[in-house]
Design a binder for these strands. Sequence first.
DNA 1: TTGAAAGCGTTACCAA
DNA 2: TTGGTAACGCTTTCAA
Lengths: 341, 341
Amino acid sequence: MNLKQLAEELGLSQTTVSRALNGYPEVSEGTRRRVQEAAEQHNYRPNTRAKGLATGRSMMIGHVIPASTQHEMVNPVFGDFVAGASIACANRGYDTMFTRVDDGDEEAAYRSLMGKGSVDGVILQVPKIHDSRIALLKRIGLPFAVHGRSSDVTDSYNWVDVNNTSAFRRATEFLIDLGHRRIALINGLEIMDFAKRRRDGYTSALEAAGIAVDPSLMSSEEMTEVSGHHQTRDLLESATPPTAILVASMISALGVRRAIEEAGLKMGKDISVITHDDDLSYLKNGQDVPIFTATRSSVRNAGSILAEILIDSIATPLSPPRHKLLEAELVVGRSTGPAPA
Amino acid sequence: MNLKQLAEELGLSQTTVSRALNGYPEVSEGTRRRVQEAAEQHNYRPNTRAKGLATGRSMMIGHVIPASTQHEMVNPVFGDFVAGASIACANRGYDTMFTRVDDGDEEAAYRSLMGKGSVDGVILQVPKIHDSRIALLKRIGLPFAVHGRSSDVTDSYNWVDVNNTSAFRRATEFLIDLGHRRIALINGLEIMDFAKRRRDGYTSALEAAGIAVDPSLMSSEEMTEVSGHHQTRDLLESATPPTAILVASMISALGVRRAIEEAGLKMGKDISVITHDDDLSYLKNGQDVPIFTATRSSVRNAGSILAEILIDSIATPLSPPRHKLLEAELVVGRSTGPAPA
DNA sequence: TTGAAAGCGTTACCAA
DNA sequence: TTGGTAACGCTTTCAA
């Protein structure tokens, strides 16, 4: 059933039926009800492509996943983020599209999405410290928003991020408070912006406590079980092994646990381990200090906020962000778009 | 740049340009080259929605993810499957769309996708033993293919599955060969078809070896770390604990490991544990017997084959599957569609 | 080998 | 408050 047939059945014009269904004010209440009922009864849904062609919008938000980030899909937070974003999109009438590309084909993918008009905007994840995608998207004019920040990029853009720096600072402080002095950091690749921020949090806590930063205790690799395993093994085999380990990723942590077990050590007794995905807080001077709190739900929340911001910026590219910015424990949202016209 | 502009620039009609770009034979080679070069140079891409409207196809394959299956997204095999499918789709010119729905809204989601014409077909995952989605999709005429099977469904449909039964039979045989007699199965929820098949493989191996199936050694719950943990704890606390555990999911296995560690037992010494995601084979009478081999790449492969099958069935709904069916170690593909006209 | 023109199912402008 | 009609950007039939 299409609009034409529905209109004929009702003895009305397509125009009126369309208006009634899309909530235009100039339709009489009686007509509107009649139209809505008929539409309901015939299970009518406007064709996406026709609607898109007429309006010039695809009502679709894209996610481009390069192969190298592929293993990120293993990461629960990826799923949480995407779920949060896609629900928020759906609430605003937007669908979610995935494009999986080989490394190096990303630029082509964005150009293609833009050229074919298949999406109204894209969500960027896992930005690098210097991320060329941002400049590209600005250049070709495809609206976007970033989950995370890109330190070296001076262009303005919208982003939402977890507060990695303060989370890792607090975690390090916690371990210091427990009496640890040799605290290792098992980090992700530090071309990733979030990894750099995490390290910054870690080093700043050490420095504040007057503990020298020891490079041999810091390790930066892909966040996989295999990497986590040998990063840990190397640490444990060194002349002066750490008494505590701070792990940036739940996936790496699998390998960390395994290596500790293999070394015959007992976690929590011989060595302390904190992972970013732990839901953790502790009492300090009678105060409950959060460390990593509900990371996964924060990320889901971030996805949903980010989607909202993106969609707002699509609807009215030059208006100020009409968004309540969050500055919650772990989620920081900020909109640094151009000033309104 | 759109077709009209490109045609004007070339001094040709839209018709000819369209034909040249879409590989129609009746275009002279000279014209074709000229058109292709101009298209290349201007970075022209046909608008998806216009093309879709004209052809009646959306060139989009959908995945509907209900909230309850959400946690499946945590499972690496989910990512692998989706990656395999989406690459295969891309190779055939199809995009991939995700719809995340609340539990119970699935039926509405499929109806909506069909009604709006947003997808040409959908991929079903994690079928239940009796799965009502299959009948629904047949009823509304939305092409689909299933990753896994639905034992209680008698309708014909296309599916690709991992051979769960034989994998779990072999794994159980392996443990029996090692001398184990009290082998536990930590399974997913057995309303899922694959979970039932896994149990069947497990029990059939026990029966073949003359070992009585002990219900107290079989546990069936959600595949989460928390469940895996307490399933294992219960097993270990029983009067007659198992000497080996067969775990259906890598996520549950996290909890299993933790529970074993907490009980002060050592894996591989006090108790043997095999997980479905292990890449495992063993020597038996001088022969290398595969157990779980490269499950993740099998699943990726399954995704790709399934997408191909789905797309073939969309293109020519009544033709016989022109597909090479696989009967590899762990992947079984089979097409049981209606006979060709 | 090429082109004109009629769709595809909507929305949106301009009249009535 | 309603309707006629021209877009939207492409494919496809029919003619030339």
